[in-house]
């Protein structure tokens, strides 16, 4: 058999359309340099996947009753920092669409753009069930952890778990969203992550 025999030549010779399309692609390629391409679509996709992960993680977390608000009140999820990927609206949509509950309580989503503003600190000290930190607020994670030791602290980047005592961090590697989880999150009494999550070896990295 002859690979690339004359048929190929025939097509290249006769299909002027290919040439047109080739020129078009070059034109568009140049255009991609001249234009102002962004990675917003990618960022928003990461946000969507993270938000669904967060929703699942909450389902796999147990809180002692004493760490939850009164049954008549809603459990709080605080989102702290500058939201660049639409996490606030995404998570609010998931809460509404899935009728999310924490310990049988309805869920209230609260966002503070400045994590250490007086209102935000007050909210952190009120022992919210979950605190989610946006990437630019990682440097304040240790302080937030100290202010609310009984919250499930979630954010971005491995350092958040390794250095700032957060429970869960999302990382993006190998074109996937993955989870880094502090080992203590599986062993402490409340909030305690289900050990079923640690069995997902390809998704979850558990670190001391």
């Amino acid at each position: 058999m002859l690979f690339f025999n004359s048929k190929i030549h025939y097509y290249l010779r006769t299909r002027g359309l290919l040439l047109v399309l080739g020129l078009l692609s070059v034109f568009l390629g140049v255009g991609s340099v001249l234009a102002n391409p962004g990675l917003i679509a990618e960022k928003r996709k990461v946000t969507r996947v993270q938000a669904v992960y967060l929703k699942h993680l909450i389902n796999f977390t147990h809180w002692d009753a004493k760490d939850l608000p009164m049954p008549s009140k809603s459990a709080k999820v605080l989102l702290l920092g500058e939201d660049e990927g639409g996490m606030v609206e995404t998570f609010e949509y998931l809460v509404s669409e899935s009728k999310m509950k924490i310990g049988g309580r309805s869920v209230e989503v609260i966002h503070f753009e400045k994590p250490l503003a007086p209102d935000a600190i007050k909210a952190i000290e009120s022992n919210p069930s979950v605190i989610f930190l946006f990437p630019k607020s990682n440097s304040q994670a240790t302080k937030i952890r100290d202010l609310s030791p009984k919250s499930l602290l979630v954010g971005n980047g491995r350092d958040l778990v390794e250095k700032h005592k957060a429970d869960i961090a999302f990382t993006v590697s190998k074109n996937r969203v993955r989870l880094v989880i502090r080992e203590k999150s599986f062993t402490r009494k409340s909030p305690m992550l289900s050990s079923r999550i640690s069995a997902l070896r390809n998704v979850v990295e558990v670190i001391p």
Partner: peptide
Amino acid sequence: TELSPFEKAELRRLLELDFLDLSRMPIR
């Protein structure tokens, strides 16, 4: 930051995925 109708529909689909499916979802 407003969600588009396409994004909302996509979120409803993602909600049906488990951890394994999510872990296999490419970003790009």
